[in-house]
Design a protein around this nucleic acid. Structure first.
Length: 923
RNA sequence: GCUCGAAUGGUGGAAUGGUAGACACGAAGGACUUAAAAUCCUUUGGCCAUUGCGGCUGUGUGGGUUCGAGUCCCACUUCGAGUACCA
């Protein structure tokens, strides 16, 4: 029998399906291991060869763990809500559910061909009512909870109401949108609407008037992580700032725990760093500046309390409430004009246009330490959303303030000895303070670090301000003006938002006649008929964003059919959390933050038993496309080979990489590729047409998309799996280049040759030779180590070496070959399953035992030593294994080759590294 | 600007501080074939010597630590990723 991947792979994939080989159940007698892939959004384009990279890596790990005796949970599902299906629906009228279902079917068939060990009985889809019931459920829970900063956890909103009834807002320790001040009597006097509004200030899911990223083209708001460089991540449409009344999640309340939790999990440093930056903790002080001739007190945040003596002006964000409060009568018009000019600019324009702009309010603030009168300005370089939306400007030591001061000719006072601020500001936090003293505080001569501490202490004592920690992490905006998403289980009773009864969930997504907004600008759900609660109140028209459904999906895999709880206690306490999560870095500041937040909230509720959802996380690199080019001579249909192109005036044209092999064009296929090339002529070099290449994003328009189905068809899934892993280190981004794939395919054929010659099974029960045992034990040792370290590419090299060695030794020993098979099984499950059964086993190789290597077999008879003089290797010698360092030293010095190097030199030192090196230091 | 990461043959990439270039691709030569494909064998960092077994050089650049540095430390160059008026 020859190695026929098609028969083998079909047969065993069928066998696995029929026997439910990958079905997983809770089994207290075995340790659990949960391996998770980031589930895909099923796009219309299907999978390309880059998508399975991470899936293959996690599949290998899952199979390996199973062979080691772990009960492995390895599920897969679909992140099924999303914009592309809806955009497609708008264009074609096709219901997004149909598109999504079709795409999922396509994904499934593609995934199945690669031979993954998913337990498909646990499949989930975020658009399934039985799934999104729990997304809606969690939302209701968030609505009904607030964050108690003293207990440092989420608490029932009823507790807060009790507190208000007894004490008003006094002594409340809760995360909130703004500090409120009211008495118990005032609380009791409030009507329902006022009470609702007050509680919104504290709820973890709340309606808030917030500045949002509005994307007019998509007709919806976007979260911060869905916007990059002023345009939407999906589609690349411009995004502008807009004030809107939206559902939000108080993610910021969890900022400290999201930060400290990073220390307890095994993620890469770079990813943790990205999250730390995103959370953006900064320690500083909040200070109050009084405004001259006014009751207004400006509150600002600064990390440089030491620089108060250098404050020469204040700046307000254009959106700040302070602007109206402080602007003097005859400046009102100028200020309004400025703010209007800002509003008309999109975020993008603001970023491109780095010109300094601003306007004077006419007001003056009083420096609380020096007593100096300083002007208050408005400028768009101050952000409304961070800190208090107002800053104290220290032009000498902040480059942005410096630019502003120079532009408007405001004074600059240097505060650090030796700092030259004539050309630019001195931003570094080091040096000795000058010009910094007043009654009761003298910072002069102090190091910056000490001065910050001293200044903070002083302002707290004097009541001018307080030490404060600020976070950059903003609350997540949770409303989308879209159709294809989870409906909010919310109705409005006389304008007061109310949650539906949990027992009525799920609230099903209604049918609509069109997926566009209504004529009066309402979201598509405004078109739904009878979109009212049982009592006849209108239901929320927005739907939830993409990250809603993906925030807790790993929990549902544990117990996917449960209709009574998001996950049963039994399943949760057994599977706990994800032991290994594999996915791309692009989710660092989105999904991976929201998931951690969501899980922590459920943990506070007591619904889950682990505070962190993903114990270990590996980021697989991106697979880029490798495009090929042909060179057409201008105004002809003649194409010139790569190395001759300089002799002509040519236009490079993308050519389908699937008709190019090792950069050599299949010219016949090219003629048939597109009608306009039917009559193409070629100028060849050495009888071949050589193409140029470039590394680009994998996309249809560049004709560089490689479909895994084609690779599977031609070489088989096992070859695809091995090759994807062989391409390079898992975490590194690399272009897909089909050129090397023959190598791994050859390896599989060679391995097949150890078992079969023609139709004859060569395997014998003879005792294996010493060398064969050594080869295979060396392999097991290497591969075990490599899998644990996700160094799959080097383990494939080890397989190649082992198979070559066994081939040379003509080893056909069952003992050795079975070890080889089991070790290879995670990488190439089909061929190993086939050969495993050929050896007479009647159960799947998945239930075999991972081999244990024996150091005894790895011992060398002779050890090769490199002998070097002053670190330069001069010759190598063999010595019997196990002799002492002193004897090796003697042998080295006595070796005839050593004589010519030692001639006339003095030996200062001899260093023997066991098994490796003898270094003789001479002078 | 800031943060993190990387730099090794024609290419992808190996190397707990211990003979750099494993493994693979590609290329060249050879065997088997009428021929091709497939398969197998040899060579393959550079330079020199190849009737000698060898020598020199070599991991982005410049320093340093060490008996010994691709690996550790300092400075620089280039590239990649993330983030960006976060006060």
């Amino acid at each position: 029998m020859e190695y026929n991947h098609k028969n083998i792979e079909q047969r065993w994939q069928q066998y696995w399906r029929d026997n439910k080989t990958y079905k997983t159940v809770v089994d207290e007698s075995r340790p659990k291991f949960y391996v998770l892939d980031m589930f895909p959004y099923p796009s219309g384009a299907g999978l390309h060869v880059g998508h399975p990279l991470g899936y293959i890596a996690s599949d290998i790990y899952s199979r390996y763990k199973r062979l080691q005796g772990f009960n492995v949970l390895h599920p897969m599902g679909y992140d099924a809500y999303g914009l592309p299906a809806e955009q497609y629906a708008i264009q074609t009228g096709q219901h997004p559910e149909i598109t999504t279902r079709n795409n999922i079917a396509r994904y499934r068939s593609q995934l199945d061909k690669i031979g993954f060990c998913y337990d498909w009985d646990r499949e989930i889809k975020t658009c399934d009512p039985s799934y999104y019931k729990w997304t809606q459920w969690a939302f209701i829970k968030m609505f009904n909870h607030y964050y108690d900063t003293e207990a440092d956890k989420a608490m029932s909103i009823d507790k807060l109401i009790e507190h208000f009834e007894a004490n008003g807002s006094k002594g409340v320790k809760a995360a909130c949108s703004q500090e409120l001040d009211f008495t118990a009597d005032q609380w009791k006097a409030m009507n329902d609407k006022e009470k609702s509004d007050t509680l919104m200030n504290y709820r973890l899911a709340y309606l808030g008037n917030t500045m949002v990223n509005w994307c007019p083209k998509l007709g919806t708001v976007l979260a911060n992580d869905e916007v990059s460089e002023g345009v939407s991540v999906r589609g690349g449409y411009p995004v502008e700032q807009k004030l809107m009344y939206q559902w939000c999640l108080r993610v910021s309340a969890y900022a400290p725990r999201l930060l400290s939790g990073l220390d307890t999990i095994d993620w890469t440093d770079s990813l943790k760093e990205t999250q730390r930056n995103w959370i953006g903790r900064s320690e500083g002080a909040e200070m109050i500046f009084a405004v001259d001739n006014s009751d207004v007190k400006l509150e600002i945040f600064t990390t440089r309390a030491d620089t108060v003596f250098g404050v020469t002006f204040m700046v307000l964000a254009p959106e700040s409430e302070y602007v109206d409060m402080v602007t003097v009568a005859d400046r009102k018009e100028a200020v309004k004009e400025y703010i209007d000019s800002i509003k008309h600019k999109t975020e993008r324009e603001r970023m491109i246009d780095k010109k300094v702009s601003g306007v004077f309010t006419g007001a003056y603030a009083i420096n609380p330490l020096s007593g100096a009168k300083i002007p208050v300005w408005v400028s768009d370089y101050v952000l409304a959303g961070y800190g208090t939306g107002a800053i104290m400007a220290v032009p000498a030591h902040d480059s942005r303030d410096y630019a502003f001061a120079r532009h408007f000719q405001l004074p600059v006072i240097p505060l650090i000895e030796g700092a030259d601020v004539s050309e630019e500001s001195f931003d570094a936090k080091s040096g000795k303070m000058i010009n910094s003293s007043c009654d009761g505080l003298d910072l002069n001569g102090m190091e910056v670090k000490d001065a910050i501490a001293a200044a903070k202490r002083y302002i707290e004592e004097k009541g001018i301000g307080k030490v404060k920690v600020n976070y950059r992490l903003r609350d997540a905006i949770f409303s989308r003006q879209r159709y294809w998403g989870e409906p909010f289980p919310v109705y409005y009773k006389d304008g007061i938002p109310c949650m539906m009864d949990e027992s009525k969930l799920p609230l099903l997504l209604p049918e609509v006649d069109s997926y566009l907004p209504t004529e009066n600008g309402e979201p598509p759900l405004g078109r739904a008929k009878n979109w009212t609660s049982a009592e006849g109140y209108p239901i929320e028209l927005c739907t939830m964003p993409g990250f809603a459904g993906s925030s807790a999906y790993y929990l549902r895999y544990m117990d996917p059919a449960n209709d009574n709880a998001i996950v049963s206690k039994e399943a949760d306490e057994y599977w706990r959390n994800v032991d290994l999560y594999i996915g791309g870095t692009e989710h660092a500041t989105g999904h991976l933050i929201y998931s951690r937040f969501w899980n922590k909230f459920l943990y506070d509720l007591g619904a889950v038993c682990e505070e962190e959802p993903f114990k270990k996380l590996i980021n697989q690199g991106m697979i880029q496309g490798r495009s090929n080019f042909v060179y057409r001579i201008k105004d002809t249909n003649t194409f010139v080979s790569y190395n001759l192109r300089k002799n002509y005036d040519v236009t490079p044209i993308h050519v389908d990489v699937n008709i190019v092999s090792n950069d050599i064009l299949d010219t016949e296929a090219f003629k048939n590729w597109r009608p306009e090339f039917k009559t193409a002529e070629f100028i060849l070099e050495d009888g071949k047409y050589v193409c140029g290449y470039a590394v680009e994003k994998m996309s249809k328009s560049m004709f560089n998309v490689v479909n895994p189905d084609d690779i599977v068809e031609r070489y088989g899934a096992d070859t695809l799996r091995l090759y994807e892993m062989f391409l390079g280190p898992l975490e590194q981004s690399k272009p897909w280049d089909t050129n090397g794939i023959d190598g791994v395919n050859r390896f599989l054929k060679k391995m097949w040759g150890l078992f079969y010659k023609g139709d004859d099974l060569l395997v014998t029960d003879e005792a294996p030779s010493k060398e064969a045992l050594k080869s295979v034990h060396k392999l097991v040792k290497k591969v075990t180590y490599d899998i644990e370290n996700f160094s799959y590419n080097t383990s494939i090299a080890a397989f190649m070496i082992c198979v070559n060695e066994l081939g040379q030794q003509k080893c056909h020993s069952r003992e050795v070959l079975e070890m080889l098979l089991v070790t290879l099984a995670p990488f190439a499950p089909h061929i190993t399953e086939e050969l495993w059964h050929a050896l007479g086993h009647d159960t799947t190789i998945c239930d075999a035992q991972w081999p244990v290597y024996n150091e005894e077999y790895l011992k060398e008879d002779n050890v090769k030593y490199a002998v070097s003089f002053n670190g330069k290797a001069r010759f190598s010698m063999e010595v019997p294994a196990g002799i002492s360092s002193e004897d090796v030293e003697k042998l080295a010095l006595g070796n005839e080759n050593a004589a010519k190097w030692l001639d006339g030199k003095t030996i200062r030192k001899v260093i023997v590294v066991p098994g490796k090196i003898v270094n003789i230091v001479i002078s």
